[in-house]
């Protein structure tokens, strides 16, 4: 299940797949990915530590993909963007109703990343949203950085529609 984002937002699609418990994340459009990542480094004021940030960002993408994999059946869309000068992991669930366990799991992930010494340059916020159409997501996304996870070749569907 996926949510189609507004046409004016140009996301970079991140394919992830698991191989012997190792997660691989590959941007479908490497050039656009590099542009958005470099822009994020500027916005996040990480130019001084750019090389380390690139490494940590790559590790972050893997960590988040691993989490997405573990919650795949509950997620309509998983997006990395920016909010308030921080990287933000926005997860759109495939149900409208509040899910206590899902929020607990996301809070744990958030805390683990915040306290991971290998991710000391990463300041991440997380947000779990109920299922909504892509237009409703606009106020939660910064179009300068929009990376969307797709596992196993899944593609977006029209706004608000669920894939059976």
């Amino acid at each position: 299940m996926a949510v189609a984002l507004p046409e004016t937002i140009k996301p970079v699609e991140l394919d992830w797949h698991a191989e012997n418990d190792v997660i691989h994340v590959i941007p479908r459009n490497q050039k656009r990915f590099e542009i958005q990542k470099d822009r994020a480094i500027e916005i996040l004021q990480r130019a001084k530590d750019a090389e380390r940030f690139h490494q940590q960002f790559s590790l972050l993408l893997d960590r988040l993909a691993e989490w997405v994999r573990g919650h795949e059946s509950e997620i309509a869309q998983a997006i990395i963007t920016l909010q308030d000068g921080r990287l933000t992991f926005v997860v759109v669930r495939n149900k409208a109703l509040y899910d206590e366990q899902f929020q607990d799991d996301l809070a744990d992930l958030d805390c683990d990343i915040a306290n991971d010494p290998d991710l000391d340059l990463i300041k991440l916020k997380t947000l779990a949203l109920p299922i909504v159409g892509g237009e409703a997501l606009r106020s939660f996304l910064d179009e300068r950085l929009v990376l969307v996870y797709y596992g196993n070749g899944r593609r977006p569907h029209p706004a608000g529609e669920s894939q059976p």
């Binding site: 149900k95 509040y98 909504v132 159409g133 939660f140 706004a159 529609e161 669920s162």
Partner: peptide, 17 residues
Amino acid sequence: YLSSSGAGEFHSFSDYL
């Protein structure tokens, strides 16, 4: 901040809680 008038299950906060 979340408002959705389109298709889908969420139309107002009460659909969430």
